[in-house]
């Protein structure tokens, strides 16, 4: 289909980009376009102006600062997959990114775009939640930090104001943690029906810390706190994992759509959580 006509601008600084957004409430940020363009082509949205961020140098790339991994919002999925720092400090991100769409999508789609789009079926929001990442937003009033737990508000809705840009994401170091992104999709290259992001830190033979976040089990990514509580403090054997995974769907409100009925998703969440934890806990 053909989108409704729009203006197009390609600023080279975050400030200029924010200025356009502040001046025009109907303007919208364009990153890799992998989610936005389909929406425009189906005429589900008709922004007045697209503010293309590709020329904003400061939004690209990965660095390590103050013991944290810092990922620029415009870093593409493909760049993340090939980045040594990501592999070292937050391998869960690389594991999940490898399952995103297909090669073409990964070469255009961006880390920041995926998080800002806040599709509950997207793979990276749950990962950011499990990692307790911090979103750094820039608006007319300057920078502010938003914890992942507060960032994802609802279906396709984040805590970003319309005139704010997600600039970068700060990710605590999880080197040494066991991890697994267990994704279940109908086709080889597709969105998740359900996926589970799991991190397990072992100490003294037992499970010292557990983080589990679920993709596509509610209108936003959710932490499976009951699972986390049930596993942390155990010795992390298969019995403990199976028992903990049984809580995976607690408090979730899974969607009911062509990709899967709610009861099937609840079942999958339990099975996939068990598998994810088994891998992450090295059991």
């Amino acid at each position: 289909m053909i989108p409704v006509a729009f203006e197009y601008t390609r600023p080279s600084t975050v400030e200029d980009a924010v200025a356009v957004l502040a001046a025009d409430p109907d303007a919208k940020v364009l990153a890799g376009g992998q989610s936005l363009l389909p929406v425009l082509r189906l005429r589900l949205a008709a922004p007045s102006t697209l503010v293309d961020l590709r020329d904003v140098e400061s939004l690209h790339g990965v660095r390590v600062a103050d013991g944290e991994l810092v990922i620029g919002a415009m870093t593409t999925h493909a760049e993340i997959l090939h980045d040594r720092r990501v592999a070292e400090h937050a391998p869960l991100i690389a594991a999940a990114t490898a399952t995103v769409g297909d090669r073409q999508v990964r070469h255009l789609g961006t880390f920041g775009g995926s998080l800002s789009h806040a599709d509950p079926a997207g793979d990276l929001p749950a990962v950011a939640l499990a990692l307790s990442a911090t979103m750094v937003a820039v608006g007319p009033g300057g920078r502010r930090e938003i914890p992942a737990a507060d960032f994802f508000v609802d279906y396709l809705t984040t805590a970003l104001a319309p005139d704010e840009i997600l600039a970068e994401v700060r990710v605590p170091d999880t080197a040494g943690w066991g991890y697994r992104y267990e994704k279940f999709s109908r086709m080889a290259q597709a969105w998740a029906v359900v996926a589970v992001a799991a991190l397990v830190r072992r100490a003294d033979g037992g499970v010292a810390d557990t983080r589990v976040a679920l993709t596509s089990m509610a209108s936003r990514p959710v932490r499976a706190t009951a699972v986390e509580q049930a596993l942390t403090g155990t010795d992390g054997d298969s019995g403990a994992i199976t028992a903990a995974a049984g809580h995976a769907d607690e408090g979730t409100e899974p969607p009911d759509d062509v990709n899967g009925a709610a009861d099937y998703r609840a079942h999958l969440a339990r099975v996939l959580t068990r598998r994810a934890l088994t891998a992450a806990a090295g059991a």
């Binding site: 109908r186 086709m187 080889a188 290259q189 597709a190 969105w191 062509v258 990709n259």
Partner: peptide, 11 residues
């Protein structure tokens, strides 16, 4: 195509 899920070579 996303919802109708025709298989690709990878499937």
């Amino acid at each position: 195509m996303v919802d109708y899920t025709p298989p690709t070579a990878a499937d």
